[in-house]
Design a protein around this nucleic acid. Structure first.
Lengths: 214, 214
DNA sequence: ACCTGAACACCGTTCAAGT
DNA sequence: ACCTGAACACCGTTCAAGT
């Protein structure tokens, strides 16, 4: 049933995951679901567990060494592997942030990340700060509020840019040059992947520096 | 009307902000709102604009110098000032991340942040990467997936910890020591404030280092 | 032009009734 | 024990009708 819920979200989007539709897919008529879950929240909790299990299965196959300075490439690969799973379920981050309680599967994922950091020599306190600093990046996604690289294109783009240039001069200046330097910057998630890795590496390097000095 | 919407969200939570309740508060009977907005999405867009205006008003009063190395404390204060506004509207981050288009007020906020970075000598490309790296932190909040410092308390805490210790040894070890080192770590947003500033400073320092070398 | 009430299509959920 | 259909309370939204 939870697998069916993930299937519905994958195929028609998370907003289409309603109790009625889920029952339809299961060939059960409508409201029988409530004999297996207390309410929809429990369905979403279960969905998170399914995705977490998929992530844990993927990162469980990793075999990089983790001692000392090797912690960094090991943590990096773990995060990017989790990200690969999430890229197959683009709706999952939204469900993750909507949960109030934490799934055991997510705790298991974090526990493995902590194992890497502790093998690298992190104190418990630095581990704690590291998890907060990484935030959702630890699981492979970064909540973007708007895409600064998403410059307007099309016929009226030039006019819109001119109007915006007065109100947001620095922003428009940046967009013009970034778009010029990298014409592929708006082509799908390739760019987002580069940006994600940039931010991840910046944080991991900052943490590594503290490992040496704190 | 948008101010009334913010008031409803402040007093009863964002989930209580329905078209019917909003009309009630405005002493208009129900469905007259649709003569002023196309749909609820437009109401939420407007709510974002109201909060963005409040943020811009607050950061507009700041007067720190921004040239060269001074960019860092200036950017830091700008972000923490935005955070102060959001702490008065704890539901706002959830509305922010739910918007697909970006409000002009948010663009204005980003434009001012870019002005600081450019005064500090950032290239357009590094500005772009910096915004992506900061993500929601640029606006003063960090999407937490679960609070690793939120150790269980109460009578059955010890038993729960013992059960969890087998499955999540590193996590439980960390929680035990962090809770021991800092018994106040679960008392409200003080802790979250410390953690937010830690992550913010780590990122700002990493960006500052790149300013010198890239 | 602006407001209104009834109605529609949808949602999560309850409940008494079936097997 | 498990499933079902009708119903309830709520939501966003439409529409014809009022002033």
């Amino acid at each position: 049933m939870l697998r069916a819920a993930v299937g519905v979200a994958d195929e028609r989007g998370i907003e289409s995951l309603t109790m009625r539709r889920l029952a339809d897919v299961l060939d059960a008529e409508a409201m029988s679901l409530y004999h297996h879950v207390a309410n929809k929240e429990e369905v979403l909790d279960g969905v998170v567990d399914v995705i977490a299990a998929e992530i844990n299965e993927a990162v469980g196959r990793l075999t990089l060494p983790t001692k000392g300075a090797r912690w960094k490439p090991a943590a990096r690969l773990r995060v990017l592997t989790a990200r690969e799973v999430l890229l197959r379920h683009p709706w999952a981050p939204r469900v993750f942030v909507s949960r109030t309680s934490t799934s055991a599967g997510i705790l298991e994922y974090y526990d493995g990340l902590l194992a890497i950091m502790q093998a690298g020599g992190f104190s418990h306190d630095l581990c704690h700060r590291a998890l907060h600093t990484l935030g959702s990046r630890a699981l492979g996604f970064n909540q973007e509020l708007f895409d600064p690289g998403d410059a307007p294109t099309g016929p009226e783009a030039a006019a819109a840019m001119a109007g915006m240039a007065e109100r947001f001069p620095h922003l428009v200046g940046m967009l013009a040059e970034v778009a010029h330097d990298d014409p592929d910057s708006t082509l799908g998630w390739c760019d987002a992947q580069t940006e994600f890795e940039f931010g991840l590496d910046l944080i991991l390097e900052g943490l590594d520096r503290m490992r040496d000095t704190v």
